[in-house]
Design a protein around this nucleic acid. Structure first.
Length: 616
DNA sequence: GCAAGGTC
């Protein structure tokens, strides 16, 4: 009997369906001589310090450098404390029994570093010796699955991928566990002061932005604005320059020939320029972009959006949610037209779905090469019944974005009028001439400016018009805003883009900080540690958060570059480089940072009121 | 009590 093991039940079901196997058992499906089973993500994790004899939190144990790492069953928090997750234990038992009966194992965990690790940890934990082959597919359509099974790879082809995954896992453990204990012990506080490769740079981003924002000194500047009247249709134009002093602006204002000062036609139209601008449809959503959108539109936290999306996925209403790709392959695209047809009766989007039936669909989101483990988030087309308000809201964002993504370009008419009246003034106006994809949600532009006119009246070069009003405007430069969840998610995604070192930047280009599946959890961790607090939509550091930031801000552990340098080495390991060099470097680094934090953490002692939130 | 990674 051949056993196929997937990363999660949904994938095992898809594969079983392709084989025509449909006998459902507890924890697996069987039929046609095959057995299809699954994990639930990582079932096993590197064992905690006490399993190597490092009891309590004590300087004597530091740095903790286990000779050989052990695996332990994933834990879950209950009212009786932290225990092995019973569901995980049960599934592991099922897998163990299936592996014992297997003649061959086919590994169908997700095609990536962590997917490989999920399987190998199970395989080694169960001390399994059976031969295994690897299914390597990037989409779960029938065709892709069939093709993948015709091209199964030898399991050993992925040994180096496992090595890189195992190194990632161990390194995070060594640096995270040791740094956390070192800082917590030396600070002498009761609470946990955690540090890690991802959470600490994230905290640093929030804190440095907060400090920059708080210390920002606004600069005052001045502008002159005029209101021009074209037979009852008025528009505003602004001086084409900002002035540092009020006097300069006043001088310009005085020269404006407006009606109240006795000039019936003081505005001279110098030029009129109208240009169409095309806006391509947006890409389909990945998890991060959906979290950002839901935060902006509905105020949902990243964590809320993920959990709502997970429940929609479990109800089979949307495809796999924790994807980092905003694209689909041609195979999925082939079914899009039929999928859109299912939404022609939707109360908000029905009209646009009907419209799309008659036009050529945009292929901007179609690119098989940019589909990684999973494709972009789509509705499945299953009928949604009686969704709660929150689930409906997220579901509609998914459906609406699908319609937008395959819709047509939006065409805008950008008009610029230059007016002269003692000085040069400029009016710009934007009119949507063809809404295209913008018809789906029918909302205004995100980057709308206060000064912009929605539409401008038709005027001609050389025309002389009355200026009905003029004004001197006093304005102030603004600091970069504090992070909210949407802008932080974006910043985590793009972290590393500004690294000077070409190789490190390249190593991080597809990853950023954290992964789509973990970013919401990282934000929650910072809040749980009392490092960061939510104040309405913004994320504000607490006294504790700022104090920890002060201690670590110049250290490697607070820089996104650390991830970049690891990614570079891990990629080398994947292509065959030795793992021992990297492991030795990590050990050395662990010793160094542990020593440094044991000294530096003392500055956190007895900070009065260190845990009270700081007002924005 | 602690990391980051995956998922029910």
């Amino acid at each position: 009997m051949k056993v196929i093991i997937a990363e999660k039940p949904s994938v095992a079901r898809e594969i079983a369906k392709v084989f025509g196997a449909n006998t459902k058992r507890e924890g697996y499906i069987e039929g046609k001589g095959y057995t299809f089973t699954w994990a639930f993500g990582h079932l096993l994790q590197l064992a905690p310090p006490q399993e190597y004899g490092f009891y309590g939190w004590s300087v004597q144990n530091l740095p903790m450098l286990p000779q050989k790492f052990k695996l332990s069953i994933r834990k879950v928090k209950t009212k009786d404390g932290v225990v092995e997750d019973p569901a995980v234990k049960k599934q592991l038992d099922i897998i163990k029994n299936l592996f014992e009966e297997a003649t061959e194992i086919i590994v169908a965990t997700d095609a990536g570093r962590e997917g490989e690790l999920i399987f190998r940890y199970i395989y080694y934990y169960l001390k399994c010796k059976k031969p295994f082959k690897r299914l390597w597919i990037s989409s779960q359509t029938d065709a892709a699955i069939k093709d993948g099974f015709r091209n199964l790879k030898p399991g050993s082809d992925y040994d180096t991928l496992f090595n890189s995954a195992h190194c990632r896992s161990q390194s995070d453990w060594l640096v995270g566990m040791n740094a956390t204990q070192a800082l917590s012990i030396s600070a002498g506080t009761r609470s946990v002061l955690s540090l890690g490769r991802v959470q600490t740079p994230t905290l640093a981003m929030i804190c440095s932005r907060y400090i920059e924002n708080k210390n920002f000194v606004p600069q005052t500047y001045y502008q002159v604005s005029i209101q021009v009247d074209k037979r009852g249709q008025v528009f505003r134009a602004l001086s084409d320059k900002n002035f540092k002093t009020k006097e300069e602006a006043q001088a310009v204002l005085d020269k404006v020939e407006d009606v109240p000062t006795g000039f019936p036609q003081g505005a001279n139209i110098i030029s009129v320029e109208a240009k169409p601008r095309k806006e391509l449809p947006p890409l389909l959503h990945d998890l991060s972009s959906l979290q950002q959108e839901a935060n902006k539109r509905k105020g949902f936290t990243a964590d809320q959006t993920l959990s709502i999306l997970q429940s929609l996925y479990e109800s089979k209403l949307v495809t796999y949610p924790r994807t980092g790709s905003r694209y689909i392959g041609d195979d999925v695209f082939a079914g899009i037209s039929a999928l859109i047809d299912k939404f022609t009766g939707h109360p908000d989007f029905g009209k646009q779905a009907i419209y799309l039936q008659g036009v050529k669909l945009s292929k901007r989101s179609v690119n098989a090469k940019k589909v990684t483990d999973h494709h972009a988030i789509l509705p499945t087309g299953e009928t949604a019944h009686q969704l709660s308000a929150d689930r409906q809201a997220i579901y509609d964002l998914v459906v609406g974005r699908m319609l937008e993504a395959f819709h047509q370009d939006c065409i805008k008419e950008i008009t610029k009028i230059v007016v002269e009246s003692g000085f040069k003034f400029i009016a710009t106006g934007t009119v949507i001439s063809v809404p295209g994809w913008r018809a789906v949600f029918n909302d205004t532009d995100d980057d709308k400016k206060d000064e912009e006119n929605p539409a401008l009246p038709k005027v001609q070069q050389g025309e002389l018009l009355p200026i009905t009003e003029k004004a001197l405007l006093e304005k102030q430069t603004k600091p970069k805003p504090l992070y909210n969840e949407a802008s932080l998610l974006k910043a985590l995604e793009t972290a590393g883009k500004e690294i000077d070192d070409d190789e490190l930047r390249y190593a991080m280009k597809d990853s950023g900080l954290g992964t789509p599946a973990t970013r919401a959890a990282i934000i929650e961790t910072l809040i749980k540690r009392d490092y960061v607090a939510r104040e309405k939509k913004t994320l504000v550091p607490t006294g504790t958060g700022l104090a920890v930031y002060e201690v670590v801000k110049d250290q490697k552990i607070a820089q996104a570059e650390l991830t970049g340098s690891w990614e570079k080495r891990l990629e080398e390991i994947r292509s065959g480089a030795s793992i021992t060099d990297f492991q030795e470097e990590i050990k050395t680094y662990t010793r160094t940072i542990t020593q440094e934090l044991l000294k530096a953490g003392v500055s956190l002692k007895a900070k009065p009121g260190a845990s009270t939130p700081v007002k924005a």
